[in-house]
């Protein structure tokens, strides 16, 4: 059950997690490139700077263009309240809340895509098309993983699914495949390498960034905050899945500490992966996502072997 302390901790994680996640990843990349790099709180400074600016809107843009980033942020938050970001308990939990998560984030994505099409430019259209195409492959991977975990644990709420403790060989198989598939999903939702390079300036190669090319000022701040929030929540989910004390009501401190450590480790790992691996060609991203779907399928097959009933 959620105590007020846990609720406060979750809210703090909601506020600080996105900034720290992006900051740590950026710092790790700089270290790998032999530089000092920006301060870890740089994303917060960026958001502050953007909020102070005046936005400029295109001639073709209607109200949808202005509303879309805020709807995206609202949808990301509304979906994210079911994620146990600290591995203890989420702000809200109900059966099949992972369905709510997936579809609420889908609403945010649809809003951003409509905002992109509102500019009447080929670049944003290209970004929206890529984003929509990759989403069609991410959804089955996500549901295969959550379905497999649900069959394994018998739970239907996200917090319960992520609290799975693999004991036997079959369990570990399912759990391992789920971690692999979920990692790919988190990287795509957060618009990171190897599918999308957040540091590139080449618009023709971008997926998420080019979709929001025309936004400026506070709207751009909302969009960047949304992407960072989804990344932080994804990292929190992965950490909760890896965390041995996840959801353990008797060892809240241990669960919290372990989750934080794992989140930090995951952020460093993501930054290292981004520094050491090259970017995939855009034509190869569907194949990469299909790999995640297959991993999810493998996880599901693992439950058959397990004989979960």
């Amino acid at each position: 059950m959620t105590t007020p302390l846990v609720v406060l901790a979750d809210l703090a994680a909601f506020a600080l997690g996105p900034i720290l996640a992006v900051g740590v990843i950026q710092r790790t990349r700089s270290v790998w490139a032999g530089r000092r790099g920006p301060p870890i709180l740089q994303p917060w400074f960026d958001l502050q700077r953007l909020v102070r600016k005046t936005a400029v809107y295109g001639h073709t843009a209607t109200a949808i263009f202005r509303v879309a980033p805020w709807v995206g942020l609202a949808a990301a938050i509304a979906g994210g309240v079911v994620v146990p970001i600290l591995g203890v308990a989420p702000l809200l939990s109900f059966p099949l809340d992972f369905v709510w998560l997936a579809y609420a984030w889908g609403l945010g994505r649809a809003a951003l895509m409509l905002g992109a099409l509102d500019t009447g430019s080929a670049f944003e259209g290209m970004g929206a098309a890529r984003e929509a195409t990759f989403a069609t492959l991410v959804e089955p991977a996500l549901f295969l993983v959550f379905g497999a975990l649900s069959l394994l644990t018998g739970q239907h709420a996200l917090a319960g699914l992520l609290a799975v403790q693999p004991t036997s060989g079959g369990d570990v198989f399912v759990w391992g495949a789920s971690v692999a598939a979920l990692t790919v999903v988190v990287l795509i939702e957060g618009a990171r390498l190897p599918a999308d390079d957040p540091a590139t300036h080449l618009e023709l190669t971008m997926v998420h960034e080019v979709m929001v090319l025309d936004h400026s000022g506070p709207e751009l701040a909302a969009i960047q905050a949304t992407a960072a929030l989804k990344l932080a929540l994804g990292i929190g989910m992965l950490a909760a899945l890896l965390n041995p004390w996840s959801g353990d009501q008797g060892a809240i401190g241990l669960a919290l500490g372990c989750n934080l450590a794992l989140s930090l480790g995951l952020a460093v790992a993501i930054g290292s992966m981004e520094s050491l691996a090259a970017r995939l060609a855009t034509r190869d991203v569907p194949r990469y996502l299909l790999g995640a779907v297959i991993a999810g399928g493998v996880a599901l097959l693992g439950t058959l072997w397990q004989g979960a009933a």
Partner: peptide, 13 residues
């Protein structure tokens, strides 16, 4: 351009 940071930094140096 292909986000191969090691080579980018190495050749640049």
């Amino acid at each position: 351009d292909i986000a191969h940071l090691q080579a980018a930094a190495g050749y640049g140096r």
